[in-house]
Nucleic acid binder design. Structure first.
Lengths: 339, 339
DNA sequence: TTGTAAGCGTTATCAC
DNA sequence: GTGATAACGCTTACAA
């Protein structure tokens, strides 16, 4: 590999000048500029990014921490991030935290030890305090999917409560009055926010919240299957179930069907996330769209702006989800509410 | 940040000795070793990985190129890779190629300009020749999902033909004789291999291949919907359709149902990939399992072994897929073959 | 076993 | 505008 030194010799200029034309960091005569450029071309010169990093204290890399990689959700998020960053010649380093506090911290430290210029964190186990403390460090970061009071500017979040609210409201407006709820784990903020939205909609329609119709799932398919089994076994009647995410909705649908219930005639279902597969279910799932690609893109823009000084974009910290109404909600005649 | 120099001063030893205890690169007295260690601890010393890279000519990073990020398939692959590499303290840089030759090459060059120690490539647009040429370069790499004669050792592949074969055979053995086939794009090797397997099974059962019952899809949902629409419109009778991947199978199922066909009574369906959502369809999709997580892991091991000299694992270049039989295949009584 | 010193390939601060 | 030259923080012969 040719080095900057060889280029400078061939072009008959100094190292400094070569560096200048590479980085447009100072004025250079068009003539010497051309000399340098053609010397580079002749040698097939490629700057060594490691040496650049060492000298400039910039790695042009941003570290990403996600809970997992195998579902469609985080892939979509990464997609939004990568596209935005790549076009700015930055690259993306990926690590997974498995929703485990120790692993998340380990991942963050790993990324920092790699000298990432910035971090994008989708963490759920680590505490707000830890994250607020991180802000004091030398590595800038943005948190996706959480709103932390002390560092609100660093957070890109979805209005989960609103999502839970419109999911439930969609059912209420179609005449449902006996609503079950399969929640995410209560130690996760977003799970609680969605549940809060559910309760809010219920209250607005004067429908009491029945603790017996609530099941705490795990945000995975298994949470949905367990949840539906629980609801059926319990015997408290319900005409609809809102699931705190699509994975659980899918699991719940399978169990409902196996139990002889047809959807949406016997039980309506609404999910949350609008995962790529949610229109492959039968019936196609009505759900809340989570614009995770856009949010990933926004996180990337935050970094481009705040870390690499590439401005021009407006940063939005809170995204509003929307109802995607497909075929899993039945309308109950207003005159005959609930089964 | 403390540097190695400060550590050496505090410990009262030379730079070289500090470096030695960091890397276990040579014998050091237990006593001086402890001095160094406690000096490190006292200063909260963290080695600068960039400086290490520059000096050692190793970045401890491996570049990954995938066609896309938003589905579940590549996420699962990344999951296998990341887990394996991370435990060896290597990190993963991700880029996407969009199945476009120019973008794929651009991605590869981008990763190489980042001085990755090795590459894992899931490319479909780039030619075999290009890849064979790459082998001459200074960056080792492994190709997933292709078997290239000149560089067979660098390839981790699935036996696609066998997969196509067992998919079709499963139908044949259950009495189906009129089989439709929704293929992947013919410019993709794996698509053709799967189709070849299909034809092989057909031949084995003495069933002629009917070109009119074949549709060339795009490996996406839309390919499945177009394919099923085509098959229905054409009017050539068929009792089953094998789809070259699950996305298309899902699309085909939706269209079939909308057209009043029930699955598997009117038409049996088999997919390929065993994506995470394939048991969320209704009926649950029978499909061919693609062990992409394992293959990703194997690619990572290849690199650990061939690039980082961390041996111990046996490298397998060819994986055999298996049938996952769920509920989308109907058995036709032997005495009354085909509708 | 430990130390010395020469790189690694850039960027950046000065002078000129 | 251009050129010396000192960092950047580490690894690694080679000596001792």
């Amino acid at each position: 590999m040719a080095t900057i030194y060889e280029v400078s010799r061939l072009a008959g200029v100094s190292l400094a000048t070569v560096s200048r034309v590479m980085n447009d960091s100072a004025r250079v005569t068009e003539k010497t500029r051309q000399k340098v450029l053609s010397a580079m071309a002749e040698l097939g010169y490629r700057p060594n990014s490691i040496a650049q990093s060492l000298a400039s204290n910039r790695t042009n890399s941003v570290g990403i921490l996600v809970p997992e990689l195998h579902g469609p959700f985080f892939g979509t998020m990464l997609s939004g991030i990568e596209a935005e960053l790549r076009s700015a010649k930055k690259h993306v380093i990926i690590t997974v935290g498995h929703s485990d506090e120790e692993k998340e911290i380990d991942g963050i430290e790993f990324l920092m030890s790699r000298n990432c210029d910035a971090l994008i964190l989708h963490v759920d186990a680590v505490s707000d305090d830890y994250l607020e403390g991180l802000k004091g460090g030398r590595t800038p970061f943005v948190v996706i999917n959480r709103s932390i009071p002390g560092i609100a500017d660093n957070c890109i979040n979805l209005d989960n409560e609103y999502g839970g609210y419109i999911a439930t409201k969609a059912l209420l407006e179609r005449g449902h009055r006996k609503l079950a709820y399969i929640s995410g784990p209560h130690w996760k903020t977003d799970a609680n926010e969605r549940l809060a939205g559910h309760k809010k909609a219920l209250a607005e329609f004067g429908v009491p919240f029945d603790e017996k119709l609530k099941f705490e799932g795990d945000f995975h398919e298994s949470g949905g299957t367990s949840g539906m089994e629980y609801l059926i076994r319990t015997g408290v009647p319900f005409s609809a179930v809102v699931c705190a995410n699509d994975d659980m909705a899918a699991g719940a649908m399978v169990v409902a069907r196996e139990s002889g219930l047809t959807i949406p005639e016997d039980v309506s279902v609404v999910g949350f996330d609008n995962l790529i597969f949610s229109h492959f279910t039968y019936p196609q799932l009505s759900t809340i769209d989570y614009p995770i690609n856009d949010m990933g893109q926004m996180a990337a823009r935050w970094i481009l702006q705040n870390v690499y000084e590439r401005g021009g974009h407006e940063i939005r910290n809170l995204f509003k989800p929307e109802l995607v109404d497909r075929a899993s909600i039945r309308t109950i005649a207003a005159t005959a509410p609930g089964p």
